[in-house]
């Protein structure tokens, strides 16, 4: 690629990341896909777990509490390393069918991120369920709604609505947390930046480009979520005629 002179600022030469724009495209794709999938799987897992926790289910409450406690109480990086490097240490795992999945760094990151996100989302949703205005639930009971229908139509929407700000935090946390995928050879946004830095032995160009992309993603996410919050909570706004 031809060098664009005005992009060369001396200390920082933006031609370097520009020469490798394709790395950043692949990196952004991997980061976004990994984050979205992990959040989605985490969300699906968190719904039953949160209900069981909120009801103080005799059998499941403590095991679930242990799960969320461990995954929220330890660094994501350690969880990823335990799954990635830990799994490779045992012949039992290496000879099992799971190895097809655990052999691949992408799947390891996906599993670690999903479990981590499930733990956080479980506690977010549980909190929102427990602080639900009792009236909403009582009305549904007095209407004769069966439990599952009540969960689906009343409790889950109401809890999700109120938990939305916390979900925003979790989404951004997951997006930022996903940088550690780069430590197990996955080409994400940070890895693309590192590769550019490594190629030209520079410190700023790759990292700043990566930072700008992350910032843009966070900006888009928060804008979108703010809108969603406005829509979902519109019923709470003072009426204007």
């Amino acid at each position: 690629m031809e060098k664009i002179n005005w992009l060369d600022w001396g200390v920082i030469d933006w031609n370097l990341p520009l020469n490798h724009w394709d790395l950043f495209i692949v990196g952004t794709f991997n980061t976004v896909l990994l984050t979205i999938l992990a959040l989605f799987v985490g969300w699906v897992l968190s719904i039953p777990l949160a209900f069981l926790r909120a009801n103080r289910n005799k059998l499941f409450n403590y095991p679930i509490l242990c799960f969320t406690y461990v995954f929220r109480g330890t660094p994501l990086l350690i969880q990823l390393f335990l799954i990635y490097y830990g799994a490779g240490q045992f012949d039992i795992i290496k000879e099992s069918v799971f190895w097809v999945i655990l052999k691949d760094p992408w799947w390891c990151a996906f599993i670690a991120f999903s479990l981590n996100s499930a733990a956080y989302q479980t506690e977010i949703l549980r909190g929102a369920i427990e602080t639900m205005p009792q009236g909403e639930n009582e009305v549904a009971v007095s209407m004769g709604m069966p439990v599952l229908l009540r969960l689906r139509r009343i409790i889950l929407p109401s809890a999700t609505r109120r938990a939305l700000p916390m979900y925003s935090n979790e989404i951004i946390f997951m997006l930022h947390g996903s940088v550690i995928a780069s430590t197990i050879t996955i080409l994400d946004i940070l890895k693309a930046g590192r590769m550019v830095n490594g190629q030209y032995y520079v410190a700023y160009e790759g990292f700043i480009t990566a930072a700008v992309i992350y910032m843009a993603l966070v900006f888009i996410t928060t804008k979108g979520l703010k809108r969603l919050e406005g829509n979902w909570n519109a019923y709470k706004q003072p009426r204007t005629t």
Binding site: Y85, A87, G88, Q89, K94, W99, K103, D104, P105, T183, T185, M195
Partner: peptide, 16 residues
């Protein structure tokens, strides 16, 4: 590509 040689040995023995 890996950050250090030691991670490469881990992944080679793991069969990755």
């Amino acid at each position: 590509e890996y950050g250090s040689q030691e991670e490469i040995y881990l992944d080679l023995t793991a069969g990755r």
